[in-house]
Amino acid sequence: MLNGISFALNPGGFLLLRGANGAGKSTLLRTLAGLTPLAGGALLWDGAPALADFCTHAARVAWLGHLDAVKPALRAAEHVPVAALARVGLEKFADLPVRLLSAGQKRRLALARVTASGRVLWLLDEPTTGLDAASVARFAEICAAHRAGGGMIVASTHTPLDAPDAQELAL
């Protein structure tokens, strides 16, 4: 159960959720996505209740959960367009079945789906798990590009990210 949480995110904003394991970062992200219902309080989008219609809210959100949601039997290019694969540096692996990819590569594939979604609000649960240093740097660039286009990001992470102007919320 989370209590007394309040924040506002403007276009281009980046909110980092910090907290120990089990502090409720994932629960907060699921609540922001509308998957887990609010027990109290309000979630507003442009001043209006965000969850009045679940599908409307879902169409604003790109979701990266702690699971990668990729199918081992499908090829990487069957998950996302090749252009999105190139953004996370997976274009060479487009025709490989996902079961042959490493954990970090699967994470990048899941990240590629987020970048290809075209949604405004990215909700990312531990997006850098399993990523190497180069991929973390690339992830920071992807985030910066999304924010430059007016997009918003809420992410939980333990790794330090190159985003000096990010807001932080300690749970």
């Binding site: 996505a33 509308g34 998957l35 599908c55 879902a58 169409a59 959100v61 790109a62 979701w63 959960g65 702690h66 699971l67 990668d68 949601a69 990729v70 199918k71 789906r113």
Partner: peptide, 14 residues
């Protein structure tokens, strides 16, 4: 089990 259901529910599809 693999998290696809969350992605599907948030795909905007009812």
């Amino acid at each position: 089990e693999d998290g696809t259901l969350d992605v599907l529910l948030l795909s905007g599809l009812p």
